[in-house]
Amino acid sequence: MGRVEGKVAFITGAARGQGRSHAVRLAEEGADIIAVDLCRDIETNKYPLARPEDLKETARLVEATGRRIVTAEADVREIAQMSAAIDQGLEAFGKLDIVVANAGIMPILGGPNMQGWLDVIGVNLMGAQNAIHAALPHLTAGASIIATGSTAAFMQNDIVENPGADPGGAGYTVAKMMISQYIHELARVLSAQMIRANVVHPTNCNTAMLQSDSMYQIFRPDLENPTLEDAKGAFGVQQAMPIPWVEPVDVSNAVLYLASDEARYVTGTQMRVDAGGYLKMQSFHV
Rank of each mutant, 00 (worst) to 15 (best):
R25S: 04
Y278V: 10
A192F: 10
I132Q: 07
D97N: 15
G116P: 02
M82P: 04
E63W: 08
S252D: 07
T267R: 04
A275W: 12
Q181V: 13
I146L: 06
Q217G: 02
R196M: 08
G164V: 03
T207C: 00
L96M: 05
H184P: 05
S144Y: 11
V62Y: 11
T173L: 12
E247C: 03
T71K: 01
A165Q: 14
Y216W: 13
T12H: 03
G169N: 12
D166R: 00
G104I: 12
G233V: 13
L61T: 09
D75H: 06
F219P: 08
M178E: 14
S150H: 09
G277K: 07
I179F: 07
R264V: 10
V70H: 03
M177H: 15
I132D: 05
W245S: 06
V251K: 05
Q18I: 08
G2F: 08
R188M: 11
M177F: 12
Q156A: 09
A9G: 04
L186H: 03
V123S: 01
K7T: 06
D37F: 02
S191R: 13
N198Q: 02
E57A: 01
A74D: 07
T71F: 02
G236W: 11
R264C: 03
A187N: 15
G19L: 02
L55S: 00
F154L: 13
M241A: 13
E185R: 12
L125M: 10
M114F: 01
M106H: 15
P48M: 01
N130Q: 02
G19N: 05
